[in-house]
Amino acid sequence: MKARHKRLAMIVAGLVLIAAAAVLITKSFRSNLVFFFTPTQVEKGEAPKSGNFRIGGLVEQGTLKRLPDGLRVQFKVTDTAKSMLVEYKGILPDLFKEGKGVVAEGSLNQDGLFVATQVLAKHDENYMPPEAAAAIAKAQANKTNTLSTENNK
């Protein structure tokens, strides 16, 4: 009797898990497989017209500013082709920086401003010590400098 109960419980647990997996898969395939839309996709109308969705891209250099109320921040999210203005009230993640990846969840208001309820930082797959990163940045700066001086000639 006991063994049979145990087996029954196992089968039920297995079925529940398979059902949960199926629900998750369909849920993912419907909307969440695309975790975010780029500003270009939003422009083209590929993002949901109403309700919440996520946008992703880079925080455009020099666009991050804190509004006078001291609580809200505004910044532009760009995919280098198109950009969108985002407003957010809350704590920004540690890796949030201008020029770095970001994913914001929220919705568009009437003025075309994206009001975010959550802001996530998306980092890249590069790992290196700060000195190496500084050296690379310096090398790139030199390269562009020499290029521009060559152009000036």
Partner: peptide, 13 residues
């Protein structure tokens, strides 16, 4: 790092 314990993106799901 991201600012969330969990997100339903394709990798995590």
């Amino acid at each position: 790092m991201w600012g969330a314990w969990w997100v339903w993106d394709a990798r995590l799901t």
